[in-house]
């Protein structure tokens, strides 16, 4: 039997809880690619992304997910990347994006 709600339905918990412990893999990801820390989420990577129009690929969002410890979500989305490297040529903060995505997808 399905649950009955009164006029609205409730999603599963969607808030980011920074009190929960950060996954250990996060630190190893930063060690493999320290330039990840320099991202300012400007969105340039996504604007030039050759996959972005057809797949859910926004590098800066992967990075935000990583920073919030949501590695599971991040890994799934990183697989859409074709590693063409356009984003890296346009990143104003010099993030080594190709290597970073590769490391993300292999976590």
């Amino acid at each position: 039997m399905t649950k009955q709600y009164f006029g609205f339905s409730v999603l599963e918990q969607r808030s980011v809880n920074l009190d929960s412990e950060m996954p250990a893999e996060l630190e190893s990801l930063y060690q493999k690619e320290p330039s990840l820390r320099a991202c300012i989420a400007c969105g340039n990577c996504a604007a030039v992304c050759s996959a972005g129009h057809f797949a859910e690929m926004q590098f800066y969002r992967l990075n935000v997910m990583a920073r919030r410890g949501l590695l599971h979500e991040m890994v799934g989305k990183a697989a859409a990347c074709m590693l063409c490297g356009r984003c890296q040529m346009s990143c104003p903060r010099g993030v080594n994006i190709r290597h970073a995505v590769l490391m993300m997808s292999q976590l």
Partner: peptide
């Protein structure tokens, strides 16, 4: 609101 994630955020 973590506006880059588009989700609420809490922290102690």
């Amino acid at each position: 609101e973590d506006t880059l994630m588009g989700r609420p955020l809490k922290l102690t």
